[in-house]
């Protein structure tokens, strides 16, 4: 039940974005996509940290913002330099998103099994800490 408020926030954000409908120039679409990827990774990292009970709100918020901006900036610089840095960003963030999702899934399954059977399942393997 406590997840309802953040999910409402997500819905509100999407609604807000579609109402405001920022006209991002097509040239910047690529960098925006990297920023979205970075933000998604950071948010999932935050969810994971909640699962791991090591959550810190300041770190999450600053992490989302700075990750998104830095990722976009890095991709832009890469374009200026003629290096496809955005490929690296996509790769790194993609891998991290899947890792975070896997950890979240493990924790959820563990919690479910604990509550339904009372048996403590195998504790999820601790994937190396790379949260913001």
């Amino acid at each position: 039940m406590m997840w309802i408020v953040p999910l409402l926030g997500l819905a509100a954000g999407i609604l807000l974005g579609s109402i405001l409908s920022f006209q991002v120039p097509v040239v910047f679409a690529k960098y925006l996509s990297i920023a979205v990827l970075a933000a998604l990774d950071s948010v999932l990292g935050g969810v994971r940290s909640i699962m791991e009970k090591s959550f810190n709100g300041i770190i999450l918020i600053t992490g989302v913002v700075s990750n998104a901006l830095l990722a976009a900036l890095l991709a832009y610089i890469g374009d200026r330099l003629g290096v496809d840095l955005y490929m690296a960003a996509i790769f790194v963030f993609g891998v991290r998103i899947f890792q975070n999702l896997a950890v979240i899934r493990h924790y959820l399954i563990a919690r479910f099994m604990r509550s339904s059977t009372g048996v403590d399942p195998i504790k999820p393997k601790h994937i190396e800490e790379n949260n913001p």
């Binding site: 953040p6 609604l15 409908s21 925006l32 979205v36 933000a39 950071s42 300041i58 918020i61």
Partner: peptide
């Protein structure tokens, strides 16, 4: 904080969708 980040993510997502 999670709600705030989710709002940010939502805005980014919808903007990106429109741009796409």
């Amino acid at each position: 904080p999670l709600t705030i980040t989710f709002i940010l993510l939502g805005i980014l997502l919808s903007t990106q969708l429109q741009t796409q």
